[in-house]
């Protein structure tokens, strides 16, 4: 006999805020890599100047603190509020990393592209998919879906390693390429960090649903 509680309505509001953060995170990753592909300063600046993510994170934190203070959540309710706060933190960090990518793209505008971009856009798609996946898992409380993010993280790590090897190779052969290669190396690193944050969110979602901490235990 479940009934709609005031708390359920507040949970829905919180879910909505997290969903908006998640969609924004995907949009920022996409735009940052687009700005790199197209050498487009306007797109890059739309990422570096974004303020919506920070505002949303503040709104989530405020909502969570109010819910703890006024509703004294316990058990699965408590896990929901704590998880929402940590997920918001991870999404905000993803936004910051997208901004870092956009800054690297701006640095690279003055140079011709070192090589055609193949693996970095692939990593970007993986990163967006990972965020979409864990968000879906959170909203629909699906632990199996949350666990799928592990595979994506492995794929991301492999791509990062391939990019790393290729760029080191190019720089070793011609030192003049370093100013163009290092930002790409950093971008691969930023995308890999984004995937780590998505994995964190996946772990949070498993804790939310199953009450089990799987962080630092390899899933």
């Amino acid at each position: 006999m479940e009934h709609q509680r005031i708390f359920d309505k507040e949970m829905d509001e919180l879910k909505d805020l997290i969903l908006r953060m998640g969609l924004l995170a995907q949009e920022l990753i996409h735009k940052a890599v687009e700005s790199l592909k197209k050498s487009d300063r306007t797109i890059a600046q739309s990422v570096t100047e974004d303020e919506k993510m920070d505002q949303l994170e503040l709104a989530v934190n405020e909502k969570c603190i109010q819910m703890v203070a006024l509703r004294q959540p316990e058990a699965s309710d408590l896990r929901f509020v704590m998880t929402a706060m940590r997920i918001a933190n991870d999404l905000e960090r993803i936004g910051d990393l997208a901004e870092d990518i956009a800054w690297r793209a701006i640095e690279l505008i003055k140079f011709p592209l070192l090589k055609p971009l193949i693996d970095i856009p692939k990593m970007a798609v993986l990163a967006q998919d990972s965020v979409a996946l864990v968000l879906d898992a959170f909203i629909n409380r699906n632990a199996a879906k949350a666990r799928q993010v592990w595979d994506k993280e492995k794929e991301t790590d492999n791509l990062r390693d391939a990019i790393h090897d290729e760029l080191i190779d190019i720089m070793t052969k011609d030192a003049a390429t370093v100013p163009r290669a290092v930002p790409l190396l950093l971008i691969a690193r930023h995308l890999e960090r984004i995937s780590d944050h998505a994995t964190n969110i996946g772990e949070e979602v498993v804790y939310l649903i199953e009450g089990k901490v799987i962080k630092h235990s390899g899933g």
């Binding site: 479940e2 009934h3 509680r5 708390f7 959540p73 316990e74 058990a75 699965s76 009450g211």
Partner: peptide, 16 residues
Amino acid sequence: FTAPRDKRTDDYITGR
């Protein structure tokens, strides 16, 4: 109070 094993406990503690 953080992760009860039984759904009935969770439902009671959370007021459902």
